[in-house]
Design a protein around this nucleic acid. Sequence first.
DNA 1: AGGGTGTGTCATACC
DNA 2: ATGGTATGACACACC
Length: 798
Amino acid sequence: MLYLKKYFTEGLIQFTILLSLIGVRVDVDTYLSNQLPPLREIILGPSSAYTQTQFHNLRNTLDGYGIHPKSVDLDQFFTTRRLLNEVRQLDRLSVPSTELNTWLVHRDSETVVSAGSQSNPGITLDNGASLEDINNIEATPAMRGGGGAPESTYDLNAADSSLGAVAPEGNQEQSSRGGNDDLTKEDIDLIDILWRQDIDLGAGREVFSYSNRQKDTEEEKPNTQHSKDVSEEQESWRNGINLQGSQLVDGETGESIPEQLPVLGSQTSLSLQECLRLLEATFPFGEEAEFPVPVSNQEVSAPNEEVPSTSQGLPLAPQLPAAEPQLDLEQQWQDIMAIMELQAMEVNNTSVQIVSNTGSARNRTAEPNPAGNFGLSDRPTPINQDVSLHQASLPSCSQDFPQIFGPQLESVSVAPRTSLLRLSSSNSTNINSTFGATNLTGVFLSPVNSSSNNITATPNLPDPFTTLLEESMLDEISLLDLAMEEGFSQAQASQLEDELDSDSGLSLDSSHSPASPSSSETSCSSAASSSSTSANFSEEGAVGYSTDSEVAAAETEEGAVGGYQPEYSKLCRMSFQDLSQFHGLPQLNSINHNHTYNVPLSSAFSEHPDLPLSAGKKSSRDKKLQPSQDLLDKHASRDERRARAMKIPFSNDKIINLPVEEFNELLAKHHLSEAQLALIRDIRRRGKNKMAAQNCRKRKLETIINLEQGVQNLRRDKARLLKEKMEFIRSIRQLKQKMQSLCQEVFSQLRDEEGRPYPPSEYCLQYGTDGSVLITPRGGTAAQQGRKPEKKQKDKKK
DNA sequence: AGGGTGTGTCATACC
DNA sequence: ATGGTATGACACACC
């Protein structure tokens, strides 16, 4: 054990050093403290929680057998418990992630690298946040420009922020504003080039405009009264874009061009060093859990709060309304992660399948270390302390992002292992995006069981990660909204966190308060012990309680009696294995509980405690009790010793387990003294009570197990419902997308009397209950142009 | 030495 | 009334 301990310790230290060399912070203490019980045990030695008692060992018994003979029949119980735990552990990652997953991202026709450190919370969160960022990127350009730092280079980046900038940039921007200026000019130039290339690819920032998305919900309503400025037109099309998920959208026609994006062009990969350099520039590794907190113009970010960096490198705060600080998004993300974890844990039946199906696909796991870091880890890895280099493709355009990851990271299951840090209960103003958060969640959740329940699952978006990215790209992500929708309160979040984090076993409410021994028993027994030894037996028989002195006296008495088989005493003492099953089968008692109390009943004792026993009972041979016999006899229960001392002619098992009728017959057959009868009754009472106590404890455990199971079931149901909700939302979104495309088609074909087309920016379609479609101008725009609303009956296309 | 855990036992209530 | 059961509380042993 010591060797093993040393081995592990040294190995961990070396590994830690190795990780630290590459910039990954490893907090061993946290692992030792609560994350790795086995390791901790190896290093620090066993703790009582994991070792020691037979009771725990029972739970850990491989097959549930080999149970302590003293216990009642808990085999099935513990086996069930064990199996349950095993099943749970199948999808639970009980080990913190210190692994470094470096993602070598290839970009089409470009040299963009998005590398992430596993131990760095930014990456996973990064991606997620980036999704948001992409959508929100355009929200508040004025805010960005207005209060933002005046870095010229980054201003340009900010202008291109919608183009899916890689993480370093956004973080760099954040970092620079937050005081982290680690990017070299080379990096900046590279980023700048990439941004420009993104622009060249035709991705407009407004595509993911947050403000536009903010109007999305309004757009959903029949908006004949809508304002009709140009931006509104764009808005409607942007909505279409948003609804289209990962599809590219033609900036002019608004048509989705889904097929173009997944194509991976020439890929230029950066070296690992470069990745790390960029990564490091983006995420200063030295700062443990503290993530570079971008200082938004509004300074809404709490200094201590983690702020999700974005792989797109887009600061969140500037894109959000001032009322919604970045930390909200961060917390929302954490909530999402928690939900996903719950989902993965509860509904993860397919997670393994996903892995198996894709083979090389790596599970993408957002796993916070105790410090709250998020990172990428491979879920199946028991101890995520490896450094892995992944490769991924990054589209040249931010819009490609989802699709790029689709083929590359197909079937990458997002199973974040994050505990809810804290749910932000703040009511952000960004509640308009009803679907945003839930969609995002759905993105994460859907992979779990997308094959079965995904109503609108598209063949080209099979994998969870792709879906995630897609959804994130499309949706207005309001994690707060998610939290609100899901009814998560802070208390619930913390509770969920506890539930997720601590899957601790049973903790019986065994209050072992060292109460003062003020019970009457003690005093009574003390008094009895102070009395003569002969009186001790009477006392025991009457009171049914004896101190060690009494027992010792009884033992000496037994020695005088002789003829016992002390070697059975231990077995007999532990022989309460569901003795109830032996009711009515007294013959089995002697088999399972080999009490050979064949000592003939001696002279009757005085039943009265005070009545002294005859001195003859205590022969001088008591003192000559052989040590081995004495030792063995010490293991006998007190009642057994008392019975032997009192020369009870039958076994305690019989006394205890015989039915009342047989028991009475047995008593009638023997002429017993009152003291013996009293002792027998006490033995029976205590024996019954002992079994009752065992049963009671067993029931207590079962109750706890059942409650635990109920909690699990409820959590599973919750996760399932959440997933269903996400799927419904996604379906609705896709329907909306389809609707918009149809509208677009309608408008493209519609002509007025003069043959002029109806610009969608000026007209909208209204759908009558009778199936008619009415073209109505948006506000007064049409009127200004002299066109009259025209009602046309359109073919039913839906 | 102190705490956690399991077990036995008692007291009490209840059936 | 008696016997059995259930359970909280306590003491003790063991680790």
